[in-house]
Design a protein around this nucleic acid. Structure first.
Length: 117
DNA sequence: TTTCCGGCTGATT
DNA sequence: GAATCAGCCGGAA
């Protein structure tokens, strides 16, 4: 478990409900402004255990669905546990609108950059 | 150690 | 806006 990965997870966990953040923002929050792609790599490596850790009153889940690319779109590639459809569904569940083509109105939901400062 | 590969980005057509 | 291009970077091989 690399440190980087831990931080990424931590940052993602800190995303307020009802808001979304870009890979770049997460990376920056981790102290690696240009490592956006690594953030994606972390997410894809998150298995169902990390995503849906249940059984505990303590929600140990990682709100990965709140992470999108800078264009405000879901850029998921396709795991077994993660699909665009699922992500869109989860987002809507938090009151975030997901337009046709899995586009998110980041103007409205994107987290402020200063959040992590 | 070196090479390769991406769930990305910002600048440029 | 949408498509293209070239850097950036931490892992896995």
């Amino acid at each position: 478990m690399s440190e980087f990965r831990e931080k990424v997870i931590e940052c993602i966990r800190s995303i307020p409900k009802g808001q979304v953040a870009s890979y770049g923002q997460i990376a920056a929050a981790c102290g690696h402004p240009r490592a956006a792609r690594q953030v994606g790599a972390v997410l894809k490596s998150l298995d169902i255990t990390e995503k849906w850790k249940k059984g505990k009153s303590r929600q140990r889940v990682v709100p990965w669905w709140r992470v999108i690319n800078s264009a405000g779109a879901i850029s998921i590639k396709g795991n077994w546990t993660a699909t665009k459809e699922l992500q869109a569904e989860l987002l809507r569940g938090e009151g975030i609108e997901v337009a046709e083509g899995y586009k998110i109105n980041m103007k409205k939901y994107r987290i402020t950059t200063s959040y992590y400062l």
